[in-house]
């Protein structure tokens, strides 16, 4: 890629991934943790597309599509679980779920 150097694109992916990781670690709200997970998955997608553009190959975009599929599956199940948990414990605090039994 002549226009955008590989390291700049990978730097963007790394920053986004680090931000998502920080979000997962810092926030205790389940919705925010899921959103930060989305940011992390998106960052991996950025890395794939940047690498695919660097070698002018379609493989990067295909891996991005697979990451996208995974993100969609993950978020649908995750949000359904959040809704279920919200019925049991009327809070979105992740630490409140430590009394789960069977």
């Amino acid at each position: 890629m002549a226009n955008v150097p590989l390291d700049q694109g990978l730097l963007l992916a790394a920053i986004l991934f680090a931000l998502g990781l920080a979000g997962v670690l810092v926030r205790r709200n389940l919705l925010f943790m899921l959103m930060s997970l989305e940011v992390m998955l998106n960052a991996t997608g950025v890395a794939f597309v940047v690498a695919g553009a660097r070698w002018a190959a379609a493989d990067g975009q295909i891996m991005f599509i697979l990451v996208l599929t995974f993100a969609a599956a993950e978020v649908s199940v995750g949000l359904a679980l959040v809704l279920l948990l919200h019925r049991q414990i009327p809070t979105l605090d992740a630490d409140a779920g430590n009394h789960l039994r069977g």
């Binding site: 890629m1 226009n3 955008v4 694109g9 998106n42 997608g45 597309v49 940047v50 695919g52 553009a53």
Partner: peptide, 12 residues
């Protein structure tokens, strides 16, 4: 889109 991956941009 800038990276030359318009399909990925549309999917995003």
């Amino acid at each position: 889109f800038v990276l030359g991956a318009p399909f990925a941009a549309a999917l995003e």
